[in-house]
Simulated scan of single mutants.
Amino acid sequence: MQHVAILVSEPVPMFELGCALEVFSLPKKDRPYWYKCDLVSFDGSRLTSSTGVTLEVPEISELLHYDILIIPGWSTQNNKLKLSLAEQIVAFHSLNKPIISFCSGAFLIAQLGLLNHCKATTHWRYAELFQQRFPLVEYVDNVLYTHQDNVWCSAGSAAALDLSIEIVRQDFGHEIANDIARRLVISPHRSGGQAQFVETPVPAKHQRFSKTLDWAINKLNSPLLVDDLAKHASMSRRSFDRHFKSSVGMSPKEWLNQQRVRLARQILESDHLAMEELAARVGFDNTVTLRFNFHKFVGISPSEYQQQFFKG
């Protein structure tokens, strides 16, 4: 059982805190070995939230006995840090323990220099300020979250859930992560490797795309082409490409390859297949194309991924 510290300071971000508590702290009757969580602070025991709610939080002076540190958010304006807090987080990082920030929580980690020369992200409305204050950080936009050197950063508020589900998936496997996502009524499929692009954001006004994307996902094991998607959507290829990228944020081909990689990851976690068979199962025409796209979206090879995450 991993012991998790959820570190808060004024003003406490209630939504992001709720995300952390819902995923990591809420008791799971069918998961006896779930995380053990403590809500903690270095800034006194009585804190006010961003919505004016007062919280009683245990004040601590030490973090090193915890296994995971979650920072749901942090002030983007206050540059002052307690020396004891700074020393504890830096020491925690030196032990290679996971540090997870939601939204503005990246400001705290970056202020301590732990993101220098690393990929990181935060909420888009803080992007300009973040880059101005921390020029040594490799800021990444258009992502849900980043992961480098055992430090995770999520983008805007709801991306905290995407990152949380990914942490659960790495700790407990794809099936349990899907169960948690289903209970939260969110998609379990917006996770990935180090570059977490939004995979299938479908605005309600584009119902044609919603049906086409669902149709395509169910046919990933066939040699599906972008022309087939355009035909299913009853659009010309040129018009389909233009409207798809405008609505989804990527080209149809990139989205299709990303979905094939997502399916390959699920198979690799539960079954041992030859690369040729895996490529065919997810609709890639050969193993070279499979390996290229897998590394592009996940950051490692299919075989390396299976070594880490196979649950069979």
Rank of each mutant, 00 (worst) to 15 (best):
L85H: 13
A86P: 15
A86N: 15
A86V: 10
E87V: 14
E87D: 15
I89K: 09
F92T: 13
H93P: 06
S94F: 13
K97M: 11
I100R: 01
S101W: 07
S101E: 06
S104F: 03
F107V: 10
Q111W: 05
L114S: 07
L114Y: 04
L115D: 03
K119E: 06
K119S: 08
H123L: 08
W124M: 13
R125V: 11
E128R: 14
L129M: 12
F130K: 05
F130T: 05
Q132I: 08
Q132W: 09
R133Y: 07
P135I: 06
Y139F: 14
N142F: 03
T146Y: 04
H147N: 10
H147G: 05
Q148P: 06
Q148E: 14
V151F: 15
W152V: 07
W152R: 05
S154C: 07
A155E: 13
A158W: 05
A158N: 11
A159G: 03
A160T: 04
A160G: 12
L163M: 09
I165C: 03
I165M: 10
R169L: 14
F172R: 00
I176A: 11
A177T: 12
A177M: 12
A177P: 06
I180R: 08
A181T: 12
R182T: 13
R182H: 11
R182W: 06
L184V: 10
L184S: 02
L184G: 01
L184T: 03
V185H: 02
I186R: 02
S187E: 05
H189G: 14
R190G: 07
S191P: 02
A195R: 14
A195K: 15
Q196M: 07
E199I: 11
P201T: 00
V202H: 07
V202E: 00
K205I: 04
K205R: 10
H206T: 01
H206R: 01
Q207K: 08
Q207N: 03
R208V: 12
F209K: 02
F209G: 03
F209C: 02
S210G: 04
T212R: 12
L213W: 01
D214H: 12
A216W: 03
I217E: 09
N218S: 08
K219R: 14
S222D: 07
P223G: 02
